[in-house]
């Protein structure tokens, strides 16, 4: 492949991707179908869709933890082969190692990747300072508040300097005030790192406030229903942006689109339960 083409290719590309699961009784179940998406370098993409539609499944295909049943996932023009070191992942639930102190959690990535200890710890202290956690190095996760744990997670993810950052409802377990603070922390880190981000959420306002583009998915099996560009200027202050006229207008437009799918997803869940 010519070098020019490779450098121009998007950070993440999903081309006609499908993913099927085997249910416990041996039937095949389609979680995502004919999924197409393209994330440019440095772009912040948000994905919204009803619960259970297949958002987490989609992210897993990008990490390389799972493989598509058909179609193709490409990173910077190349195929996904195993877990890609250029990827960082922020989990919905707490994924810190409870038996490691804060600093040992942050330093995990560089040490796994064979960095010398001195260098790794120096870098970890730097990242902890950046998320305002200096002085908490030797605490254990259970001694921190939810917001602090989330900031440790972000430091743990960002220290590897991922070029692609996947986030699966990372702030959904936080209270509203903490969440807004975390949004600003995230946007700050992102504007420095210039990574490409796929941010999955079920909170539409969060999606619009953060992203350059919002993907709306259909109720499962998930495909892309529509894509909305977000033209709000950066840098953004998340706490204030939600009161702007164009923000409200956009969120109304997208919600009209999303609501049908949410209702369809809920109806389907009820049908399954009955």
């Amino acid at each position: 492949m010519p070098a020019i083409e490779a450098s121009a290719s998007p950070a993440v590309e999903l081309i006609n991707v499908s993913r099927r699961f085997l249910t416990p009784d041996g039937k095949s179940m389609t979680a995502i179908r004919d999924f197409n998406m393209s994330v440019a370098r440095g772009e912040f993409v948000a994905v919204v869709g009803p619960t259970g539609c297949g958002k987490s499944t989609t992210l897993n295909l990008v990490t390389g933890l799972a493989r598509p049943s058909s179609g193709e996932v490409r990173l910077f023009g190349g195929p996904v082969d195993g877990i890609d070191p250029r990827i960082g992942f922020a989990f919905q639930t707490d994924a810190l190692f409870p038996w490691r102190s804060v600093i040992d959690n942050v330093v995990a990535g560089p040490l796994f990747r064979g960095k010398p200890r001195e260098e790794a710890y120096a870098k970890a202290r730097e990242w902890l300072a950046r998320v305002h956690l200096s002085g908490h190095e030797s605490k254990y996760p259970h001694q921190l508040s939810g917001g602090m744990r989330k900031r440790v997670s972000l430091a743990q993810t960002f220290i590897n300097e991922p070029q692609i950052l996947l986030m699966d409802e990372p702030f959904s377990a936080l209270d509203v005030q903490t969440r807004v603070i975390m949004h600003d922390v995230l946007l700050g880190l992102w504007s420095e790192a210039k990574a490409s981000v796929i941010f999955v959420t079920h909170d539409l306002e969060e999606a619009i406030a953060l992203a350059d583009k919002v993907y709306v998915l259909t109720a499962g099996p998930a495909t892309v229903k529509s894509v909305y560009p977000v033209a709000l200027p950066r840098p953004r202050v998340v706490a204030e942006i939600r009161y702007q006229e164009d923000f409200i207008a956009l969120s109304r437009t997208i919600w009209d689109d999303l609501r049908d799918e949410v209702e369809r997803g809920a109806a389907r869940d009820e049908a399954v339960a009955a």
């Binding site: 990490t63 933890l65 070191p85 992942f89 989990f91 994924a95 796994f112 590897n160």
Partner: peptide, 8 residues
Amino acid sequence: ANAQILGA
């Protein structure tokens, strides 16, 4: 999954 993505 977290450890694997971090590089373990």
